[in-house]
Write a protein that binds this DNA or RNA. Structure first.
Lengths: 247, 247
DNA sequence: GACATTTTGGTAAAAATTACTATAATTAAG
DNA sequence: CTTAATTATAGTAATTTTTACCAAAATGTC
C-alpha cells in the first residue's frame, strides 16, 4: 500500500500513487445482411469475477505488450477473420469499477481501455472452447453484462452511429461486394428509418464516385436483379476529410 | 505461446501481466482573441525524467482518485479558472513510452490517459511556482516536448478542429460576450482562412437562433461598432445532435 | 468634410436536397 | 403463357440551401 522514498514521482510522499492492472475490452460489431441485424460479440466469462456472466471479450495487458496488441490478441482468440477494423474507444478507470480491487488487499486498481472493432459477418469464424462460449447478440437483445461493459457497449454503439455519417466504415462490415440496397439497409438498421429516402441515398452515393459497379447481378427473390458494387478506397481518398459524406 | 493450466487470470502463468502506473496529461487550449492566437499550456518539468524540458501538465493517478479527478487536480495546480471544458482524449500505453520503465528493474509500465481542455484566456490565471514555470505557447511555436507529448498535442489539436465543426466548444474559449467577428476570427485561426465567407458565416449562425444580441456595442479602432453576443445554450439544445452546425 | 474601415442587411445566381414519377427486369400467381 | 407484384434504376421538377457578391450604416482618421 504505502508508496514512498523516491525522488522522481511528484506527490508521492503524502498521497500514495495507485497501482494498476490494465485491461483491454473490445466492442466488436458486425451486421448480418441477410437478416438485417446489428450484432455484437459477447463471451461467457470462464473466470471470477462474474463467472458465467456475459461480457465483452477482454484481457489483461501482458508485459511488453502494447494496448493494441492486447486488443488484437483477445480478438484473435475468439474469432478468425481476414479483415478487421480496430480503433481505440475510451478508457474507463474510476476506482471501484472492478470487484477484484476489493478482493486483494493490495489496493490494485483495474483500468479498462476499450476498443471498437468491425468485422464482416460472413468472414468471421467464431472460435469455441465450449458451446455458447462466444456468440453474436443482436443489439436489441443484450443480456446483463459483467463489469461496466454495458456502458462500454453503449459508447461503442454511439461511435458506430457517428462514424457511419462521415467515414466509410460501412464497408468494413458489409461483404466485399454488396448491393446498394444492402448498404441502405445497413444505414437504416443502425441509424433508423428516416435518415434518407432510398432513391436519393442511391444517387448521392453513386455521384460521389467511390462505388464501382462490378457488372455482376444478383437476384434475391422477386424483383429486378441488383448490381453488386465494390468500395474503391482510392477513389474515396480525396473525400477523406470532407465532412458528412454519407448523410 | 501455448496458453493453459490456470483458473483465474488468463495467461498469467506463462505470460506475466504488466504492472502500470497511470498518468494523466492535459492538452489545455485557449485563444487570445486580442492577438488572434491559439494557445496551449505548457509547464517546465521539475522532476526527472526530462527535467527542465517542456511538457503538457500531467500527474500520476493517486489511490482512490478517478482519472477525471486527476485531470482536474493537475489543472487546478497550474491555473485558476471559473469555467472549464474537459473531455477525455486518448490513451497512450505502449511499452517504452516512458524512460522510467527502464530505470526501475520492476518492469513497471507508464500509461498516459490524455485529456482535452478548453479555458477562457482572460479568466485563466496562471499559478507560478517559479517564473516561466507555466506558460501559454502559440500553437505555431511549440518547443520540443518531453515524453510523447507532441503526439498528444497533435491529437488534441485535431480534436479541437473537428469539434469546432459540429459542437459549440467555441463558446468555451471565447469570453462570455463576444462580437461575431471574434467568433469568425476564432474559426479562421483554427480552421484556416478558406472555410467560409464572413458575411455568410454571420447570417448562417444568426439564423440558427442560439446567439442573443446583448444590445451592447463595442468599438475597436475604426469602423462601425459591433454588437456583443452571448451564447444561449438552451436555444442550442435542439441542435445538439444535428451534424455540422457551424460550417 | 472626405475617406478608409468595419458592421450589418441583403440579393441574385448556382448548387444541392427533396419528394416524387416512370421505366426496366425479374419472380410469383393464375 | 399472361398478368400481377416486386424490386432496381433513372430521372425530374419544386424547393431549399449555399455561394458570391453588393450596398448602406456607423464609426475613426486625416
Amino acid at each position: 500500500m504505502p508508496e514512498r522514498g523516491h525522488r522522481n514521482i511528484p506527490g508521492s510522499l503524502k498521497q500514495p500513487l495507485a497501482d494498476f492492472k490494465v485491461g483491454v475490452d473490445n466492442a466488436i460489431f458486425s451486421v448480418d445482411t441477410e437478416r438485417n441485424r446489428l450484432l455484437i460479440l459477447l463471451v461467457k466469462r470462464q473466470d471470477e469475477p462474474f463467472l458465467g456472466q456475459r461480457s465483452l471479450p477482454g484481457t489483461l495487458v501482458r508485459q511488453g505488450e502494447s494496448l493494441e496488441d492486447a486488443a488484437y490478441r483477445i480478438l484473435a482468440e475468439k474469432i478468425r477473420v481476414e479483415n478487421l477494423y480496430l480503433e481505440q474507444l475510451y478508457t474507463f478507470g474510476g476506482p471501484g469499477r472492478d470487484p477484484r480491487e476489493d478482493a486483494t488487499s493490495y489496493g490494485v486498481r483495474y483500468l479498462s481501455v476499450s476498443y471498437f472493432a468491425l468485422v464482416r459477418f460472413a468472414e468471421a469464424e467464431l472460435i469455441y472452447q465450449t458451446t455458447g462460449d462466444v456468440a453474436w447478440y443482436p443489439i436489441e437483445d443484450i443480456p446483463k453484462l459483467a463489469f461496466d461493459h454495458e456502458r462500454i457497449l453503449q459508447y461503442g454503439y454511439q461511435r458506430l452511429r457517428n462514424k457511419l455519417e462521415y467515414s466509410p466504415i460501412a464497408f468494413e462490415v458489409l461483404p466485399e461486394v454488396f448491393t446498394l440496397n444492402d448498404l441502405y439497409q445497413l444505414y437504416t438498421t443502425v441509424l433508423g428509418e428516416n435518415f434518407s429516402d432510398y432513391s436519393n441515398f442511391r444517387s448521392r452515393l453513386l455521384k460521389l464516385g467511390f462505388l464501382c459497379d462490378t457488372g455482376i447481378k444478383v437476384s434475391r427473390g422477386a424483383g429486378r436483379p441488383a448490381s453488386l458494387y465494390r468500395f474503391d478506397s482510392k477513389a474515396f481518398a480525396p473525400l477523406k476529410d470532407k465532412p458528412l459524406v454519407f448523410i
